[in-house]
């Protein structure tokens, strides 16, 4: 599926369930997302992780509404509980099945996003393998001077920004030396198309999602 269309579908669906308290709609989003994830052969482990991680905030929300609010509203509590999972699965069905580069190409070609945004962001993402080690190094270098930096120390953020400034200059210079010129047209090695099938799926799935929502309004 075209990455931009897929993203649009997921954002619209997520927004729509945010405005309603509709258990069947949430379950439908979860069902479609899980099916899609299985179609993309997601690992059992990843799926288990998706189920486990949101459980604390989801359960916390449930108890707040059901046990502690004055109305003890089970319907709302369970709608909120499942909605958390709907967000997680819908979100994952995009981020686990789409490569950042494919999204960048699609946004560049289909949405005419200026290339500096697409490739600037990608260049930054390219540093990801070094990010964790960098934070460890900053902390250790300071520890060796007797200074303990942690997430509540402004100096940790300051040092991280200094690293970011340095990297951003090196990466930008490298981009320019690889022929990149801001706001100038580029050719496309591969054309990313929006196929009729993509639109059909998007519209089709959105119509299906309206069924439980309209049903709730009618009753």
């Amino acid at each position: 599926m075209n990455p931009t269309i897929k993203l649009a579908l997921i954002l619209i669906a997520s927004l729509e369930i945010s405005f309603t308290y509709n258990l069947p709609a949430n379950l439908l989003v979860i069902l479609i997302s899980v099916t899609y994830l299985f179609y993309h052969r997601i690992h059992g482990k990843t799926l288990a992780w998706l189920v486990i991680v949101p459980i604390i905030p989801a359960f916390g929300l449930f108890t707040t509404i059901y046990f502690f609010s004055s109305q003890h509203d089970l319907a709302t509590a369970s709608a909120l509980f499942t909605r958390m999972y709907a967000y997680v699965f819908a979100g994952a069905s995009f981020s686990l099945t789409t490569k950042p580069l494919d999204l960048a190409h699609s946004l560049e070609q289909n949405c005419h996003l200026p290339s500096k945004f697409a490739y600037g962001t990608l260049a930054a993402f390219n540093m990801l393998p070094k990010i964790k080690q960098t934070i460890v190094t900053i902390k250790s270098a300071a520890a060796m001077r007797g200074v303990n930096l942690s997430w509540w120390s402004p100096h940790l953020y300051f040092k991280a920004i200094l690293v970011a400034i340095n990297w951003s200059e090196n990466l930008a210079m490298a981009m320019i030396s690889h022929g990149f010129v801001e706001d100038q047209p580029r050719s496309a090695y591969e054309l990313v198309q929006v196929k009729a099938r993509d639109i059909t799926w998007m519209v089709g799935l959105l119509i299906v999602l309206q069924v439980p929502i309209v049903w709730q309004i009618m009753n």
């Binding site: 500096k116 945004f117 600037g120 260049a123 930054a124 690293v163 951003s168 200059e169």
Partner: peptide
């Protein structure tokens, strides 16, 4: 500029 964008993303 592109380096600002890289910086913000980083």
């Amino acid at each position: 500029h592109v380096r600002d964008i890289i910086l913000l993303a980083l």
